[in-house]
Simulated scan of single mutants.
Amino acid sequence: MKPSILGHERILKLLPSLSSQSLLFTGPEGVGRRAVARWYAYGLNCAHGFPGCGQCPSCRLEEPTDYLEIAPEAETKTGRKARNLQIRLEQIAPREDGGENLLDWLSTYPRFRAKVAVIDGAHLLNEPAANALLKVLEEPPAYARLILVAPSREMVLPTLASRSLELAFGPLPEETLHGLTRDPEVLAYAEGSVGRVRWALDNPALFNQLAGRAQGVLQSLGKGPAQTLEALGPLLETEGGLSYLARKLGQSLPPEDPRRAEALLSLHQAQEALSAYVSEDLVLNWLGLRLWAAAQGRETLSGH
């Protein structure tokens, strides 16, 4: 069945009228870019057009017809968490060792009307994979639609971005999320992300653990840099943990307190560094020192 979409009415209204075969979905994590991509695939293949009717043979399928998602592998072949996330050439073009890839998948006709391929993490394509994808974007099959998903247009290679029509997804207004929850703690964690709301509601024990870890960081700021560093480590393991800490920290100090501005700036810079794939250990050590020093009203070693 077609996915239920929260918000993004403007994009849902626009998508059926677009003729572009390559689209770039930008925006923060968890706001619904992938759900909209699946909605688009259902609509393209529905016997009655947009929105998917839910009754025709294509719409009755559990997953949209002729739909492929390509994303970086989160784990290495040895089962460890991958530190260098990337989409590799063999995911885009055929290799001697076989395996599913975009070009082979696109070489066959769709079961119904269209094939929709999502490159989830287009900013993480390595150079050979990006070059192979570029050739597809330049001459896609008539039945193909390609959707690149990335945090922003600037993070995608210009050669790929220039051949794609951008649709920018913003955080959802809080009132839109009220249909799912009115819990202020969950909404503070979500920051407009329906994905985070659903994660918190589906995993209450883990969310309570996250809240406890954030509170532990706040308590550690009065103890010492080593304690702050120790408390920060587990928080970084959760998607959105630093954003949630920033919200809690902002609530704990009055707006006019200079320590508040310094701490929030440090958290923002740490999030940017992690988004740029700076070493987590390096960011953790830097942030622990900055937050502790800000809480004491001291200048950090790196200044401002």
Rank of each mutant, 00 (worst) to 15 (best):
K2G: 01
S4Y: 05
I5N: 01
L6W: 02
L6D: 00
E9Q: 03
L15E: 03
L15I: 05
P16T: 00
S19I: 00
S20P: 05
Q21S: 09
L23N: 12
L24F: 03
P28I: 05
R33S: 09
R38C: 05
W39S: 09
W39N: 07
L44K: 09
N45I: 07
N45H: 10
G49C: 05
Q55L: 03
E69W: 00
T76G: 13
K77A: 15
T78E: 15
R83I: 04
N84I: 06
Q86E: 15
I87E: 09
R88D: 03
L89C: 03
D97H: 14
G99L: 12
N101R: 12
L102C: 13
L106R: 10
Y109G: 07
Y109M: 11
F112T: 02
A117T: 11
A117V: 15
A117R: 02
V118I: 08
A122F: 07
L124C: 08
A130S: 13
N131P: 09
V136R: 05
E138D: 02
E138I: 01
A144E: 03
R145V: 03
I147F: 01
A150G: 05
E154K: 03
E154M: 01
M155G: 02
T159K: 02
T159C: 00
S162D: 01
L167S: 04
P171E: 11
L172F: 07
R182L: 07
D183A: 04
D183Q: 06
A188E: 12
Y189V: 06
A190N: 06
R196L: 10
R196S: 10
V197W: 04
R198P: 04
W199V: 09
A200Q: 08
A200C: 11
D202Q: 15
P204G: 13
A205T: 15
Q215P: 00
G222I: 13
G222F: 12
P225M: 02
T228F: 09
T228P: 14
A231V: 14
G233P: 00
P234G: 12
E237G: 10
T238I: 14
S243V: 10
L249K: 13
Q251V: 07
Q251C: 10
P254F: 08
P258N: 12
Q269Y: 07
A270Q: 05
S279G: 02
L287P: 04
R290F: 00
L291A: 03
W292A: 00
E299W: 06
G303T: 05
G303Y: 00
